[in-house]
Write a protein that binds this DNA or RNA. Structure first.
Lengths: 150, 150
DNA sequence: AGCCGATCGTCAGCGCTGCTGACTATCGCC
DNA sequence: GGCGATAGTCAGCAGCGCTGACGATCGGCT
């Protein structure tokens, strides 16, 4: 481990690997979703909103792990494209319930298909079991806990 | 795969997993390296510079996968901390050969130890074989090719 | 020798993210 | 009725990566 001569291969560094794997996936995903006029970020928001009971902006932000101030811009964008709409919550009028429009739901369905295909292609470089193992390992690292899927 | 009721678990999304795994590692790494006055980014630069023959800024940038304009700021920072110095290349006076100072080398050695320990701890949530498999899989995805380590 | 296109480092400027801090409207509680 | 806490919004800042421009220098051509 002395600093000279030994290349200290960049691809041994976890930080480098995670950064570039993420980067490559983001690019791939963006390219695949561009024709639908959206991206992975928005799609994730749509997916969260579509799942289960209607959420307030802050609840949605929490699930996605983004800041509530960031969520404002995200919802702005969705609303501008008529994919979602803010509805003042009658129960608590401080909250904006964000609801998908029909267009939002349609886009979500189509885009999710694209996403699934994109993920498969992205992982195609790996043997199937390795890909599954990767997912499981990332889940542990990303969440800090072993929360196996439902 | 219809959009309602089914939670479409966020942790099934490759993008989410890669992003948050990366994020968590970056934070962990930053915390660990802060006492040394550096971070994973700088450390990677130092490591690249220390490996083998002296590099020009652009060569170093290429290896790290960053832009040459970004490299300017990176080298600025290293120079400000007396960890590296620019030396006009005598062979091609357009190029800045970037060389580690003794201080740079010392910091690199200490920081690399910290990095290795940090990676081990970060991966401690996974059984050892899984951690190795993760690394291998990420290497494939990050580089787009199966370049097994040296 | 002189010229010209290409290359390296630098800088200014833009866009995207993510944050902090402040403000308004509203809530829940005393 | 009053008061602290909370949701959404907005302005502003910092980090990062990029583009586009510039001066200095190189290398090849004539």
């Amino acid at each position: 481990m002395t600093s000279d001569a030994r290349p200290e291969q960049l691809t041994d560094r976890l930080g480098y690997l995670l950064k570039h794997a993420h980067l490559r996936y983001t690019e791939t995903s963006a390219r695949a979703l561009a024709p639908l006029g959206t991206d992975g970020r928005e799609l994730a928001v749509l997916a969260v909103l579509a799942a289960g009971a209607p959420l307030s902006q802050q609840e949605a932000a929490g699930r996605l792990g983004v800041d509530r101030t960031t969520m404002v811009a995200l919802v702005d964008a969705l609303e501008a494209k008529s994919l979602a709409e803010r509805v003042r919550s009658p129960a608590d009028r401080r909250k904006n319930t964000v609801r998908l429009t029909d267009r939002g739901r349609q886009l979500l369905d189509r885009a999710e298909e694209v996403r699934l295909r994109t993920e498969r292609e992205f992982l195609a470089a790996l043997p199937a079991p390795d890909a599954a193992a990767l997912r499981a390992a990332l889940r542990v690292l990303a969440t800090g806990a072993d929360d196996r899927d439902s």
